[in-house]
Design a protein around this nucleic acid. Sequence first.
DNA 1: ATGACTGCAAAGACTTTGCATCTTT
DNA 2: AAAGATGCAAAGTCTTTGCAGTCAT
Lengths: 137, 137
Amino acid sequence: MAIVRRSKKRDAILRVMRHTKCHPSADWVYQQLREEYPNLSLGTVYRNLNQLSDQQIIRRVGVINGQERFDADTRPHAHFVCNRCGTVLDLPDFPPSRQYIQSLSTQYGFTVEGHESNLRGLCQDCKKIITLEETVS
Amino acid sequence: MAIVRRSKKRDAILRVMRHTKCHPSADWVYQQLREEYPNLSLGTVYRNLNQLSDQQIIRRVGVINGQERFDADTRPHAHFVCNRCGTVLDLPDFPPSRQYIQSLSTQYGFTVEGHESNLRGLCQDCKKIITLEETVS
DNA sequence: ATGACTGCAAAGACTTTGCATCTTT
DNA sequence: AAAGATGCAAAGTCTTTGCAGTCAT
């Protein structure tokens, strides 16, 4: 509905999003920009990440360890999520077949707008840390 | 670690979980049990859902519209999630291939413990409501 | 009896929002 | 000048937690 005007803060937020592959939370983006924009407020980061998601310029990745995470790469792809530290890695997509979607959407009457495919487990670093912890105990 | 004792409240919570297919939030479970256990507290529901998840007796489905949702069906399966109302439907699994997991876990050094596969879109009811809204405007 | 479980209320973590002010067009 | 964008702080929502009392083994 509302017209979107350009703003320096939003440009900067999008720039940060596009220059990282860490699938950031709002607070992470905020921390990156505090130095450059000392009066930036966390609320503004939230508002802009939400607006950019609504415009489909970025994507919501989901809530990980209590925080919504975002991704500037809107191409279809899957994620690996570490169950311990929440690190997210990009993976090639493993989509359901057209036939799968077709038959289920007919059966249940829903419309499919997208899919999310994640692997869950332990990242390389956390595997090491857990091994260390077991050694100690 | 800690010994687990049986409790009536936890039994009831698990019973509710097993008798619904709505993939409930903590509050939904709480509301179902308020009449039967007028002194039940929401904190107890949270503690028990967390404990049951840790024991892998139930599963976390993820955060939908701000609330963690749970599922008593621990068999591998996919979900459809309505982007508007948050309804969750069970679907047959569409897992990544063994080869996909094998090659990526080798490449990145992570260990895969599971996968999540969701379709996202609009459920049958929400499709109708949106059509109505468009008619009005 | 021991230690797990619970109710209650407070605290915590994250996100949204109201309002006055500043910017963009 | 009009309307979107922002800072700030307050409010909102969901979840966790400390503590004293209760219950299961």
